[in-house]
Every structure is written in C-alpha cells, then in structure tokens.
Amino acid sequence: MFRVDRDGGTLSVTVPRNAIDAELLRQSAASVNGGAHARVVEDGAAVVVEVTAGDGAAAGAAASALFGRANGYPAFPAGTLEGFRNAERPVVSCIVLLPFNDLFARHVLLPSIIHSSRGHDIEIIVVLAGFGVDREPFQHLRMAESEMACISKGYNLGVEMARGEYVALFHDDCYVADPEWIGRALAALADPGVGAVTPELDSWFGLPVAKGVPLVMRRRDWREVGGYDEYYFVGVEDMDLTCALRARGQRVERLDVRYAHLRGMGSSLVAHESPHQLKQLFGYQVLPRTAIAGVHRDAMQRLVSQPFIRFLEGQYHLHFLEKFGDFLADNGVDVPMRREMYAHMRHPHLLTPAVAYASNREKLLDAYREMMNVDELARPV
C-alpha cells in the first residue's frame, strides 16, 4: 500500500516493494539536497523512505524530487516556483485551473511551466475552484476564485484576466518538459487557419478533441468563439470548443512537444475515499504511472455509477448535438443514433431528483459534495 505519514519536518513514505526499484530509490535518496536528508529502509513487502528537513514544506519538496527521479518524472531546480515573477507585458498567459490538486501544482506543474518557458515573457494565472488548497505558495502569481470544480467557468475567468496575446490552458494533472513548447506553439499559430494547438488530441467517434495539457490559442480567437460553454459543469466543454473552432473553418493541430498527462488526478480526488492521502501521493510523485492509471480507473467507475453523473452525461451530450448537429453530420457522425443513445442514457433518471441538477447549479454542487470526502479534502497538508 502507498502511504504518506507526516511528523513535523519528517515525511515517511511507504511503497510496495514490487512497485518501485529499491536500488534506484536509494540512489535518488543519496542525491537529496537543499538541507534535507533521506534514508531508505526495506521492511518485508514494503519499502519505507524517511525524508527529514527543516520543516514540512522543505521535506515535501525533497520527497517530490526524490520520488520524481525514482519514477522517471522530471526534476526542477529548487526554488523554481518561488523565484518566478510574472512578466509585466506577457506574450503568453498560462492559466491553471486548481480545484484540489495543489501539491502537484506546487511541486510539478508550475515549476515545469516556469522551467520550460525560460526566455519567454509569460504570466501564470491560478484559478482556485475548490477548497483545501494552500494559497500561500501561489501568492506571487495572479489568482482568482471560481465556482467549485466547474471547468468551463474557471477557464473562462482565467482568460478574462489574461493580458497575453496567447493563452495556454493547463489541467492540474499534467506537466510540460520541453523548452520549445512556446516557440513551436506560436509558430503553428502564425497560420490564421490554425485555431488551437495541443500535445494531446482525444477522439470522439473519430473527431479530434483538444485537451488542455496545454491547449494554446490566440486570446482573440478564444473570445470570438465564445470560450468554453458554461452550460457544461465538467466534461464535454473541450469537445464543444474544438467543434466551435472547426465549424468556423479553423484547424486544431497536434503540438509535437514533450509533456505528460497523468490523467484523472482531479476526478480521482473527488471520488476517492482518502483524498488527503491521495493528494500527497500525487504531489510528492510517489505513484508510478501504472498506479495513477489504476486509481483513475477506480474513480471513474465510482463516478459513472452515480445516477446524476449518468444523467448529466446524457444531458450534456444532447446539448452538444443540438449545437453542432449539422457540422457533425457533415463530418460523418450518425447524429440521430447518437441522440438516441444519449437520450436513453438520460431517460432512466428523468423521474428522479437527478433531473434538477442540470438546471439548478446549487443542487449540482450539493450532489458533488455528497460524493466527496469533504472533511479530508479540506484538511491542509
């Protein structure tokens, strides 16, 4: 079992022996710096790593660097986040939506943006959209508060605040590890026929879907297309934006840069029974990619078992089909069949309280809270 225990300036991290290379862990522990000390102890079927530093924050930073190296994640110079300052006249506005996954953003995502953007004028805007987040590490950045976990509204608010000619939208479960990412993105967007670029294009029945890992656009295009449709609370907004760009004749292209999308950290924190533990495991980079994928799979199974989630999935897709039916049909999508499928998904819940969630945001937020372990999510790390 993966576990993190904290006692003042000491972090004790337990991992299954078969989940990590103990020798590589020892090598990583030997290279810990910044005044921290680490030791590795094998205890039966587990390996225990104790990291000690002057305080909990320093121990956490050292643990994140140690496990990052052991798991093959990137490492960044100490103080990368703390030493960054927004440009007075940014060219690119990097927008991070942060509901709950603040430790990962602090130790991995934000340092990756800063380190990979050297030589470019950027600003970072953190949109808080949850609770239990330690704001102190982000005070020197630009911050805003938005509705809990509402992806579309949070990113729209961030773009409204942006000063750059370009915006780059980042999910809170990714990182970029390529110093060429801005140069390549801006070179692609020099073509007015390109509406957006991203390293990751998902597929919905053969149509591309641009993911925010990051999603880079001209701010002017974002505003002209209307940004994310705030009808969607979570999900479908990326499909909607992609189709909106393509329907007006612009392309969405894949950006060839080094990045990683550790998919599903946000939804896993919402659905997991021990989100306080999970937040630390994510933030200190303890979990290998295979373990993160397993956690995400279990979280999604729990989420889709909720009647109101199934109802919303059907309702949101019907809204999407209503907006883009003609465009989708012209691109080979069997729209009548999809309408029937999503109407059937929604139908069993039409006579239940779930129907109110699509039109009453307060009820929707209450339903999300009922799924969460709120007390654990709200606990500071």
Rank of each mutant, 00 (worst) to 15 (best):
P288A: 09
P199R: 00
A144Q: 02
A46V: 15
R339Q: 15
H272F: 05
V355W: 05
D55M: 08
V108K: 06
S267A: 15
A354W: 01
A87V: 12
D191V: 01
A61V: 13
P348E: 11
G183I: 04
S117M: 08
V213M: 09
D43G: 09
R223E: 15
L11A: 09
R338Y: 12
I309G: 13
A63P: 01
P380D: 08
M341P: 01
G294H: 02
R297G: 14
M161Q: 09
V127C: 05
T352Q: 08
F2L: 06
L201M: 04
F100R: 01
R302M: 08
D173K: 00
S31M: 13
E82P: 12
G193V: 04
H347F: 14
G130D: 06
S267Q: 12
E165V: 02
Q315G: 14
A247S: 11
M148C: 15
R6T: 09
R218W: 13
V225Y: 03
D21E: 07
Q315L: 12
S93H: 09
A38L: 01
P137R: 03
P16Y: 07
G226Y: 02
D172G: 01
R220A: 15
R346N: 11
E230G: 00
Y342C: 08
V48H: 07
V47W: 03
G9L: 08
S93Y: 10
N86F: 02
E165I: 02
G132S: 06
Q277H: 01
R39F: 10
E362Y: 03
T198E: 14
H37D: 14
V41S: 15
S203R: 10
